[in-house]
Design a binder for these strands. Sequence first.
DNA 1: TACCCTAGCGTACGACGTAAGGAGTTGTCT
DNA 2: AGACAACTCCTTACGTCGTACGCTAGGGTA
Lengths: 268, 268
Amino acid sequence: MAVFAGQGDAARSMPLLWREKGAAGHRHGPGPKPGLTVDAVVSAAIGVADDANVAGLSMRAVAERLGVTAMALYTYVPGKNELVDLIYDGVHAELPTDGRPASGWRAAVTAWAEDLVALYVRHPWALQVSFARPVLGPHEQAVLEALVRILRETGAGAEVLRRVVSVLFHLVRGTARTIAEARIAPTAGSTSEQEWWAGRAAQLAEVVPDFAERFPQTMWLAGAGAARTGDGQTPYLEHEAREALAVGLAVLLDGLEAGTIAVPSRGR
Amino acid sequence: MAVFAGQGDAARSMPLLWREKGAAGHRHGPGPKPGLTVDAVVSAAIGVADDANVAGLSMRAVAERLGVTAMALYTYVPGKNELVDLIYDGVHAELPTDGRPASGWRAAVTAWAEDLVALYVRHPWALQVSFARPVLGPHEQAVLEALVRILRETGAGAEVLRRVVSVLFHLVRGTARTIAEARIAPTAGSTSEQEWWAGRAAQLAEVVPDFAERFPQTMWLAGAGAARTGDGQTPYLEHEAREALAVGLAVLLDGLEAGTIAVPSRGR
DNA sequence: TACCCTAGCGTACGACGTAAGGAGTTGTCT
DNA sequence: AGACAACTCCTTACGTCGTACGCTAGGGTA
């Protein structure tokens, strides 16, 4: 159940993160030819992280996937923390870095957000990683670069856009987290979403019989107008999460378009 | 470096979470008197989590703080996962559950958000916990209840408010995460924020000399108009994070006030 | 008094990250 | 060609983790 915190030593992570992949004719010097590459280790680790739902990323598991002992990995990677930094940046390479053909910046921002949500849903462990760390690697940086490129079309200033960018990342990561939760939860019991929620509700009713009296507002929020069925394909919770993202995006982009986003006076 | 994922078995966590604290004259039956209480274990664990910056929450550490061996804890708590669920809900008890005197719902929502950010900044490990889990415990539930009570003053419907609530949580958690990062990072090197960033920038310049050409938009975003000094008290990054939260709140509450938040047609 | 339920502890097991050092391979230099 | 040095990979081992198991001993109830 242990997970990770992306606490790799930046001084050791960064040369690996920004390593030149193209330089194929790299010096090699004496010694046996390496049987592995950093890329191989990274993609094996991504595979392990994707499979073992959150926790089971261990050096031994990665090594086994490569047919090697755990200690062999330390030839390519300084330690587990740095490996986590590498796989975190690595998955961001899956995103389309350059402008897809979108009509206008609003559509482009929306597409950017949906791509990023999809990425985090594919690799939910990534949402656990970047704690106590700024942007470190090239692929994550490219994601930011692509967003800013889109947003500059609005003509807004850097101070405003910095805030907009922050809010966008919070919305995307929060949404992805909710969706990932919604997907993982029923998987454990292998029941349908409805069954899972019914079981949970029954449990709650037994432990807290007076729930409705103690939390009337929550009852109202959950109950009112909730047909409680998704569109048949997307589970209900996930559908809700995506709607919430749409709302957040809409109000933010409205504000940006209207130019009503305030910048604090400089002397503040 | 291991952290946690809040994967406690709900069937075992929930009776503990919702235990009746008031019932002092609880049955006890034969056997030696319990030397500890669940509350004592929980608050010791919260202390350990606060001290050992993210990682060092171990059963042995909690036990040592209580003058007990690790195995003694298993009398009160089924396992570590469930203990994590307990301390996660436990810290939410620090919040004022009931309406503080705020003039109007906008001020009240803002106060709610700031209180919650402050809570997560005090206990940054809590941001790591709630992965793959919905609201489970009474204190977290009370936080939601308080928010909904405020928002109902707007007269908006449940479908709209569900989305607003989601966005608010994403903003708060994202902001708190950024602030927590900003506080932890320089602590490690024990230098000032400026020095830390200067060091990081030098490192980056050495590893990626062509950064400015590869990421011009990022350079523009970071550079333009950034006096790069906080107000002297609050560090720069934290100041930025709070401004971003303010922007996010403003646009969201503007949208709510204007009634422009769309609800998808029911048949969808 | 007899009983038995239960709190707390000691021991132990398997998994984890990784330090240390040895074995074997391969380039470069004399 | 031969010697050396650099390098990969493995074995072994240490300390820490969560926790299963079984014991001791204390204190209600009968």
